[in-house]
């Protein structure tokens, strides 16, 4: 906050490439500091966008529960109708798919939140100078809130199927961190590209949707086709998303070694994309006019 007695403490200097001269480490420190300072702003923006959308709705916040419920009903319907013969996954198939797809939803939520960081805040960005990091965290908080509701409903559904989640679910928030790093790093880059190349954003977003089929979420990984096996093996999402699912259902990671390898890579990607965002965002904003 400002100190009226000594404005020199709040000297801000804007030059053409002032952020290029800042070291990698310092840029991350500045970003972290901006996020911490923007806590109240993030909360206010979250309240505005999350609750604001229900203001004109008769059902109001009931909508938060309707979508996950519709998901549950549809998978149960497929199961009851015998349309799905996925093989043995250790637990009832609808439960397996529900948890798996909700984890996919969470990953896409992280990606979507980041990829809309700049476009969702356009109205504000053009009018006031503030820490834009707040926009990513506002977006992510919205997606996490949606996911938390979905997860609670799905866990209740698991209990109905007689499946008790593992106690290791307490590690769940840590297990989804690499998903956040990977989703946010791709999303942040897409957020910047979307301003200068709309086509590339569309291509990447469509491709991201297809990746779900390269991840063993709606089918078992015990498959015979070699190229599909290879695809699953080299897909980092297999280890990150399936671990988030498995920690709840089976109380273990999908593949511990690969989880940590891809987790580390995701973290590095996150740091690099933040740095790129840090040095480029203002140059891109001026092209949003």
């Amino acid at each position: 906050m400002a100190n009226k007695k000594n404005p020199e403490e709040h000297l801000m200097v804007f030059t053409p490439g002032e952020r290029h001269g800042i070291s990698l480490w310092k840029s991350w420190v500045i970003i972290a500091r901006n996020i911490i300072r923007s806590r109240f702003l993030i909360w206010q923006l979250f309240k505005r966008d999350y609750f604001g959308r229900f203001k004109k709705s008769y059902l109001g916040m009931t909508w938060i529960f309707i979508s996950p419920l519709a998901g549950i009903i549809s998978w149960v319907f497929f199961q009851q109708a015998g349309l799905l013969k996925p093989g043995d996954v250790g637990i009832p198939y609808p439960a397996y798919v529900l948890i798996g797809t909700s984890m996919w939803g969470l990953f896409m939520g992280f990606y979507g939140a980041a990829s809309n960081t700049l476009s969702a805040g356009k109205g504000l960005i053009m009018q006031i100078n503030f820490s834009h990091e707040a926009l990513l965290f506002k977006q992510t908080t919205m997606r996490l809130t949606n996911f938390a509701i979905v997860l609670v409903m799905n866990l209740l559904f698991l209990l109905v199927f007689g499946i008790t989640p593992s106690w290791k679910i307490v590690f769940f928030p840590l297990v989804i961190l690499p998903m956040f790093f990977l989703g946010a790093s791709i999303g942040l880059i897409v957020s910047m590209i979307s301003i200068v190349a709309v086509d590339i954003k569309r291509i990447i977003s469509r491709s991201m949707g297809l990746l779900m089929y390269a991840t063993p979420l709606i089918y078992s990984d015990k498959i015979e086709v070699e190229w599909v096996k290879a695809l699953i093996k080299w897909n980092p999402l297999t280890y990150l998303i399936c671990s988030a699912r498995d920690i709840i259902i089976y109380g273990r990671l999908y593949d511990t070694k690969m989880f940590f390898i891809f987790g580390g890579i995701s973290f590095l990607m996150f740091l690099i994309s933040w740095r790129l965002f840090f040095v480029s965002e203002k140059r891109l904003i001026e092209r949003m006019i």
Partner: peptide
């Protein structure tokens, strides 16, 4: 500080407030 300059320099000392558009951020 919303746009970066292409040449030159801007220095602001103290807390800055701006009212560039009508109710920025109003829902």
């Amino acid at each position: 500080g919303i746009f970066p300059p292409d040449t030159g320099e801007v220095r602001l000392r103290g807390r800055a407030s701006a009212l560039i558009s009508l109710g920025a951020g109003f829902h």
